[in-house]
Simulated scan of single mutants.
Amino acid sequence: MAGLEIVRIPVLSDNYVWLVHDPVSAETMVVDPAVAEPVLAEAEARGWKIGAIWNTHWHPDHTGGNAAIKAATGAQVIAPAAEAARIPTADRLVRESEEVRLGAHAAIVMEVPAHTAGHIAYHFAGDSVAFVGDTLFAMGCGRLFEGTAEQMFSNMQRLAALPDDTMVYCAHEYTQSNGRYALVAEPDNDAIRARMADVDAARLAGVATVPTTIGQERATNPFMRAQTSEILAERRAAKDAFRG
């Protein structure tokens, strides 16, 4: 089976929208479109027709393009059932362990609440790909806007259990600021120091630092590496106040 083609579309100040295409079925979907125009333009330039929108959570910088893309393409909007009231464009509501498909490629829905109460991720086990929205970032995790440190700790443990080679597609370019805090949280972690040298060089050159991998995060992410929910809570509060 041919692999998924995944295109990064940078929008707003630091968002990434992911355009995902199955070359066998010619089906295309978009993950968390903050806005519509760049996404429609990229799909048109590639000759791809968007048939679905997959949302991870309700925040406007993840759903703001839903209506316009849906109007332009007739795409079906797939969204977390727990956030149905906040995603009025949704056509299909999905829950834990449900399957969502792009051609022959199957993704399983993972409920990962904390950043928002109904946040989900989509895991393509057969493709070693996960779209995680604002739950897991490169060397970071989402703020606890609607949930608890205990929930986020559970999310981190669950995602850490995925194979190390799983490609993680998050929704923001936060790696450099996350890494600066990671160096403070784990000053003796040589893997973080080495990774930050690469990240700083990439950002200086204007190069994106995501996707990441589960293996990289297990080695360098202070939130995934937190041994208890209490430690994660302390680190999340410290990162919220961090100005390094």
Rank of each mutant, 00 (worst) to 15 (best):
A205C: 10
V20T: 08
A104P: 08
M29Y: 02
M196C: 08
D91M: 07
D14T: 06
T73L: 05
L102M: 01
P187T: 10
A34I: 00
P60H: 00
N221W: 01
G206K: 14
T135R: 06
R180C: 04
V184Y: 14
A71E: 13
F131Y: 13
Q176V: 12
R203Q: 15
N66Y: 03
H119P: 02
A84M: 01
L12M: 12
P113F: 01
A191L: 06
P88F: 05
D127T: 08
E186K: 09
A45C: 12
I192S: 04
T73C: 15
V39K: 01
V20H: 03
A160W: 09
A130F: 12
G179N: 03
A67M: 08
A72M: 03
V17Q: 05
G244T: 02
V77E: 09
Q176L: 15
R86M: 13
P60F: 09
A52D: 06
V207D: 10
Q227I: 08
P88A: 03
V30C: 04
D188P: 01
N55H: 08
F145R: 13
Y122I: 03
M152E: 14
L232Y: 04
G133D: 04
G215K: 07
R225G: 07
Y174R: 14
R158G: 02
H57R: 06
H105D: 09
M224Y: 04
D127N: 14
M156R: 00
G51P: 00
R218K: 12
A104R: 05
T209D: 14
V207A: 06
T135G: 11
S154I: 03
I50H: 07
A104D: 13
E111R: 11
I192R: 11
R180H: 13
I50R: 02
D165M: 12
M1F: 03
E234A: 10
E37I: 08
T213N: 11
N189A: 07
R225E: 09
T89F: 01
A117E: 14
H57Q: 06
G103C: 00
H62N: 08
A161D: 13
C141S: 15
G133Y: 11
R193D: 14
V39M: 04
E83R: 05
I87V: 11
T63G: 03
A71W: 07
